[in-house]
Design a protein around this nucleic acid. Structure first.
Lengths: 207, 207, 207, 207
DNA sequence: AATGAATGAGCTTTCATTCAT
DNA sequence: AATGAATGAAAGCTCATTCAT
């Protein structure tokens, strides 16, 4: 039930998986405590549902957002904007998916790790292609991808939608950082024109 | 007692603060369960001790490692190397200091947040100075600092000392990313010579 | 649940509130330890329930037993007999209601103190009326009431239903003491005829 | 040590024997926790010491205060005044000696019960003698003694030295009640002259 | 699909007590 | 005589889970 998921998301975000009691989860979802077991086999399943659902949606949205046949640098820019937007709008899911992995039982962790790897490899492939095409500096593409992902994924920690910087401004700032970090300097000089590729679900804007 | 800290560090890293039972902590530390209360007033104090101790040491080492009177770019490089080395060697502390903040009671959280802010401001100041000196691209120094810190701090998530990449190789790779991300392109082209400043406690290497 | 109350009454009487463990209480009541919390929010509530329930019943029985419109001396005699009978038959409740007051949290103590005050004032009013009517010696009615209540309430400390003295004999003996203590000597001389007013729930007897 | 006794008296009075932790007792007495065991074999001994010491002193003071060879009624009056004064001045000891008996181990309880019995029998003997001498109404002397002792011992529950009634006024009021309760009416009429026998350790006063 | 009642296992914390110094 | 450190046992309470309805 979606009310359980909503309550679980909020509670795990605030108190952690171990810190969330099922009593409270049920109360917050507006149902009886034992009714939970009509929807989930046990507590762990609530966490697995939240994490997997988020990561699967992340993956499928990614594939929809990033055209497989575009040139590497365009795919790179699209990826950056997609990732940033998605993460700024789902700070709780992002936090849970990172810091509650340790609460997953091995089999569930393996499932999640696989999803995560597929997402990471999407960026790794983009970077690899970009290097092959000569538009990115030669470097270890895995290290570069991990570095960029960590940088981008850290946004929700401090970003506040009501704060002084708009989502768009933060996007632009981070994209500049990321592009500068990996692009071939010459290409980077040209990239300003293309940074502002609009995302399907975000209001279009021009450079 | 240091044995309690060692056990607490490991257990909180593996199972989280809420997931760590004091029975297990005591057993792991090789003492009776109630003996814990001769060293800490309560469970929370164990966490506070671990987090504060780490952050205070981080701050004091930072101040020792980064000379206040050096030019901005040199300070930047020193900061990067210091931060990376410190974080690669303390993956558990790093993880705890980030993802167990929510388990801190308000007063303790305030104390930790202050320490964290002081550390972040060290990098912000460096970037601000670098921009003023014209060696770094104009950008929001806070955003740049947060972005870089997230990128650098993400290393321990995947870095494995027994893995194919050495600590030094990872350092060099990340420093290239970070420098490229914020440096003025011209300056960056010149920076390769200076990236490999050796740290006192790490084996010297050449660029 | 009444089985919990029965077990709690016995255990608190024997070992005191602080001395009663909830493990033992549950065992004595024939339920699991955590089942207690389905009936009481916490340990204190068990005590509050026992004390308040007894005092409220005491008050309501008193009002049923003592007719408000009878002459003072008749009300006095009825009060004495009622109080004695009630206390001889509930030695454990009486003891708890007196000596566990200190274990009550302030709010609960206030509630109980109010009930107790209402009971005491019933006797004070009787004595005041008796003095106004000239059938009792002039004295401080509060002091007299406290003195008599202490005297009467002390019965369960030594009274043994299986002992040599019957409930009725003890009643008569104490009533003589109490009447002599406060009655106007002339009236007291005449009162022997009226001492033995039968109580509804006690076997009728004649003087 | 007398500081331990003082702290124990206060703590047991406030929180009960079971409710008094030895940590707190030691802190209140200004000594280390384990130092207690240099003075008492265990917690129980602290209680036994307090109770026995009080009852033994009560007994020995009683024998000093009440002359064995005086006529019954004079001894009665002396006893009343002695008991009241002693109890009004030691409310905490009195409370403990009554309501902590249940915390005594059997052997210790027996010892205390014996002391208590000796005290009660002093009054029983006085009443018996009074009846034999014809100055008191015929009644069960044990019941009368228990009734009077309960009445008199209840004073400290409500008496407040700073309150509106002085110690002397309360004494006089209670003595009138007690005398009226057991005296032969004719004798009682004559007794007013003799109520105010002064106690050694209380300021002399006149009727 | 939903629930109230029940429960064994576990939680953090405090207990009275011991012991080496 | 005094103490700091240590400890097994027990405290009150919450946990995730089951089950009959």
């Amino acid at each position: 039930m979606s009310q359980i998921r909503a309550a679980g998301l909020q509670l795990i975000y605030q108190r952690g998986y171990e810190g969330m009691g099922l009593r409270l989860l049920a109360a917050e979802a507006g149902i009886g405590q034992s009714t939970l077991y009509g929807h989930y086999a046990n507590k762990q399943e609530v966490l697995v549902d939240l994490i997997c659902r988020h990561m699967e949606e992340l993956l499928s949205c990614l594939h929809r957002a990033v055209p497989a046949d575009a040139p590497p640098f365009a795919r790179f820019l699209t990826f950056l904007r997609f990732h940033l937007t998605y993460h700024m709008r789902r700070p709780r899911e992002v936090f849970i998916c990172y810091s509650e992995l340790r609460s997953l039982e091995p089999a569930n962790l393996a499932r999640v790790t696989d999803l995560r790897r597929r997402y990471e490899h999407a960026l790794i492939a983009i970077i690899r292609d970009g290097m092959a095409a000569g538009v990115m500096r030669r470097a270890d593409p895995r290290v570069a991808a991990y570095g960029l992902l960590a940088m981008l994924s850290g946004v929700p920690v401090w970003f506040d939608p009501q704060g002084p910087l708009s989502e768009e401004e933060v996007c632009a700032e981070y994209i500049r950082l990321a592009v500068a970090a990996v692009a071939d300097p010459l290409e980077a000089a040209l990239s300003d024109r293309t940074i502002a590729t609009p995302l399907p679900d975000s209001p279009a804007r021009k450079a």
